[in-house]
Write a protein that binds this DNA or RNA. Structure first.
Lengths: 138, 138
DNA sequence: ATAGTAGTAACTATAATGGTTACAACGGTG
DNA sequence: CACCGTTGTAACCATTATAGTTACTACTAT
């Protein structure tokens, strides 16, 4: 069963860390908290940077958020790490037989429903903010 | 990017075929419409059978639905082909550092949100029936 | 100049997928 | 009763994305 990559959960972890310990964080420290290799962290940080969520001080280290924690949603993170692209949560089999009523129609009809399904999921992602998560840490 | 397996879209295709051409279908014909290998079809049919959605006449061939098309939802199909298990749409990185405030809490807090997200998606899947799809074929 | 950090490229092991071959089991039909 | 076409499975393979790893360059404060 294919699941959505841990890149996403790691990214949320990273952002939570930065939210809590603002600025005193090296990639190696983050890697220690996430429990993975520092390069994995740097890769994800690169994506978060490109999405405009964080700022990193090269050379010396230290990261900070570019938006308030109330304004970073799980959807923002999900999109930043590119874990699922637009309308591609579900993979639909390709090149069905056009000679057949079903084969001819299934792709378009099913895909339009699946797009709705994906939207419903992403809409729910947008309702949770980073601040809601960190508020529950204890 | 990992996507949800085409097993799901193929299953919908198969059920649509049965709904339209009730009973005169061999696995090889279905494979021709889906455009894949017959064994792939049989594998999926096996899952649909186990879920109580279809009935297959062994030996001689031919399949029929065990429920009305109005009563088969995309969620039923999705669950039948076991494409995503309960609360496992998102994979969460394992064994974060318990010494760290974030590491200690992230798993539980994030997972509870992600379960909500998955529920939202599945709820939307349950709103589309097989009959709604086949009605749009032309 | 040095030390410690970030940025990347390249390689690897792992796991799920989807296609394939092969064969056994089944059930009408001649 | 034997045959033929079908279903049911097991086993294998190529492909793909992931996540970890090594190695190296570039940057910045001291």
């Amino acid at each position: 069963m294919k699941q959505i990559s841990t890149r996403f959960s790691m990214a949320v972890h990273i952002l939570s860390l930065i939210a809590v310990n603002s600025n005193e964080l090296t990639g190696d420290f983050i890697a220690g908290s996430v429990n993975t290799n520092p390069v994995v962290i740097r890769r994800i940080m690169g994506m978060l940077k490109k999405a405009g969520l964080v700022e990193v001080r090269p050379g010396v280290g230290g990261a900070s958020l570019l938006k308030a924690t109330e304004e970073i949603t799980l959807l923002d993170v999900y999109q930043a790490v590119n874990v699922i692209k637009e309308n591609q949560l579900f993979r639909v089999h390709e090149e069905p037989n056009e000679q057949c009523l079903v084969g001819r129609n299934i792709e378009l009809v099913l895909q339009s429903e699946l797009n709705e399904v994906q939207s419903a999921m992403e809409h729910r992602l947008a309702q949770t903010t980073l601040s809601q998560l960190t508020a529950r840490f204890k």
